[in-house]
Design a protein around this nucleic acid. Structure first.
Lengths: 211, 211
DNA sequence: AGGTTAGTGTCAGCTTCTGTCAATTGACAA
DNA sequence: TTGTCAATTGACAGAAGCTGACACTAACCT
């Protein structure tokens, strides 16, 4: 909370995120131009690109916050847990503060609808996936350090993280396509999918319920 | 193999793919403009966009072929196998014909280097991921039919496919960053990663070797 | 108060991609 | 062979995303 300059900067940034989200949600991502966003906020187009690396970046401003919290939670897990447990526990502890973290940037309802926009817009799906892989790299590195492994030769951390990440994305899509667009609903779907992860790989496919 | 018209069309398409791959590999993807490709093939820029939906599409022309073969192999698996086995067996049977399938479009060495370009170019990584999810959807649908499940309520097919897909992408990246850039090398890395998939989820992390 | 600097606007330009229309060329029947 | 039709292409114009350069304003510091 320093000078006026930084506060102003924060305000224009917030305004850009807010307005962009509203336009994306109401008109669609592809249909919204950067010029429309900047006109609504009354800044130049050039300024927009000084705040965000691209039109896509502003769509993931909230996601950035959430993911960084999850990452921190993983780092904070005690070393006694198995890697798989550490990931799940970190996820659980993240759910608690997630609501407020989102609300700090945009209303939660808006973020929910933005999530659906992301999941249904091919260009944004692509970016979402790329971001996931980047997060996977970081998580795999953390797990490798936890277990004292060489990340270049031992692929176990990466494989574990990749499966987790894949399941979480599946859960995210399932949730976005459903009715219950609450955080609690998302949590339930995700837990359910993670419970399925182990049994589903076995040959006795039916050892777990599908629904 | 019908009229002259179709042959001509195929030739320009092949030329575009070939030239694009060579330029991407030598100069990099971002550094290569569509104009450079079309000038080398001597067609108008407009023609390029009639053959490919975008600059990215031409980079995945070969991948398209390979993935569709894998899909067909999954569909062709006998119903007796568990879903997880069906995926692995389909993968095994795909490796055989993969080499020729690639060679039909571009030299294999070129495709290998193109793979590395894809893995190291953020924009292409993003597209690659999006394509993976689309393939996942199709595979999940196939598995759901195989097992007679309702794909909307039973998430097991999707979860299984998501884990598989994640592991295969991990393997692909590991292979691309290594030394042995042969198809056989890729196959080995992928098999290894898939073997890790089950044990890695358990709490006795060390029940499998890392290397 | 005055110099410094971060932040912004303006402008000019590049690249990807699309719509449109006229011209060309292969296909096919008379 | 010739004429007609449809498919393919090229040329042009233009929108949208994005970047570099430069000047200007306003906050900051002494």
């Amino acid at each position: 909370m320093t000078g006026l300059r930084e506060r102003k900067k924060q305000r224009t940034r917030d305004a850009l995120v807010r307005v962009a989200h509203e336009l994306f949600v109401t008109h669609g991502y592809e249909e919204t131009t950067v010029d429309e966003i900047t006109e609504a906020v009354d800044v130049s187009q050039r300024t927009f690109f000084r705040y965000f690396a691209g039109k896509e970046a502003v769509a993931f401003a909230v996601q950035d916050e959430v993911e960084s919290r999850f990452y921190d939670a993983v780092v904070a897990r005690p070393p006694g847990e198995s890697p798989a447990r550490a990931l799940r526990n970190a996820l659980n502890s993240t759910w608690a503060s997630m609501g407020e973290a989102i609300q700090d940037v945009v209303p939660i309802g808006l973020h929910m609808r933005m999530w659906q926009v992301i999941e249904t817009t091919p260009a944004l799906v692509a970016v979402h996936m790329r971001r996931s892989t980047e997060m996977e790299d970081q998580l795999a590195a953390v797990l490798a350090v936890r277990e004292g492994l060489d990340p270049h030769t031992d692929l176990r951390p990466r494989v574990l993280v990749a499966t987790f990440s894949g399941v979480m994305r599946t859960a995210g899509r399932q949730w976005g396509s459903g009715e219950d667009l609450t955080l609690e609903g998302a949590r339930q779907v995700m837990d359910h999918c993670l419970d399925l992860m182990g049994p589903v790989l076995s040959d006795d496919w039916s050892s777990c319920a599908g629904e």
